[in-house]
């Protein structure tokens, strides 16, 4: 994968509007989204967004920091491709006469994909793989005629025991504020200056 592509993984609050906040940020700052996938996580109320961004490394840094500024984004990290598992799923409907099935199945087998639907004129092929493997399969199927296709966009996790943590330590400032708001004498703004 080219070095101009950055896979950003963000844990976000599962709230209305959060996708809008993220996409609006990308539009406004002129960041180029190549792929975006959203789904639930092991933690209720938290979704994971995997966003693939194109641009120089300085862009990746800005994307991460700007995302982090969104209140609904809990944590965000840029994944190193070499130390992550990156996958994408595609469903590809290919034109296929009964006499071509064997031939197409051979191609699918090479890529370790599977056929999940058959009709007299088409098959649907499913493949989960890295993006370039998907691209290679698609190129091989193109001569038969691709009728329609859908890809999920990339999802990724860091290899090994490391996780994207949602819990961080409270800073001193936050602790001070949290202590003050509970015991607030009525009518006194705890966090304003004199």
């Amino acid at each position: 994968m080219s070095t101009n592509r950055h896979t950003v993984s963000a844990l976000v609050e599962d709230r209305p509007g959060v996708l809008n906040r993220v996409s609006s940020l990308f539009r406004r700052r002129g960041f180029n989204i190549e792929s975006l996938a959203v789904g639930t996580t092991e933690e209720p109320g938290i979704s994971r967004m995997t966003i693939v961004v194109e641009g120089p490394p300085s862009i990746a840094d800005q994307v991460q920091k700007q995302l982090d500024k969104l209140i609904d984004v809990v944590t965000v990290e840029t994944l190193n491709e070499d130390e992550s598992v990156v996958r994408e799923l595609a469903l590809i409907k290919v034109a296929c006469r009964p006499d071509q099935r064997r031939e197409i199945l051979d191609v699918v087998d090479i890529f370790r994909g599977s056929v999940v639907d058959v009709s007299t004129t088409t098959v649907i092929i499913q493949l989960t793989a890295a993006a370039d493997t998907l691209n290679a399969l698609i190129e091989n199927l193109r001569p038969y005629g691709i009728r329609e296709m859908v890809r999920t966009g990339r999802i990724a996790l860091a290899r090994g025991p490391r996780t994207t943590a949602t819990h961080q330590h409270e800073t001193e400032e936050e602790r001070r504020f949290h202590q003050e708001i509970g015991r607030l004498p009525e009518g006194e703004l705890p966090f304003s200056s004199k």
């Binding site: 976000v12 609050e13 944590t75 949602t166 819990h167 708001i181």
Partner: peptide, 15 residues
């Protein structure tokens, strides 16, 4: 009135 306001996606840098 909340005893505690904490927003998990929000950090306040200090030192």
């Amino acid at each position: 009135w909340p005893e505690h306001v904490s927003v998990r996606g929000y950090r306040i840098p200090g030192k």
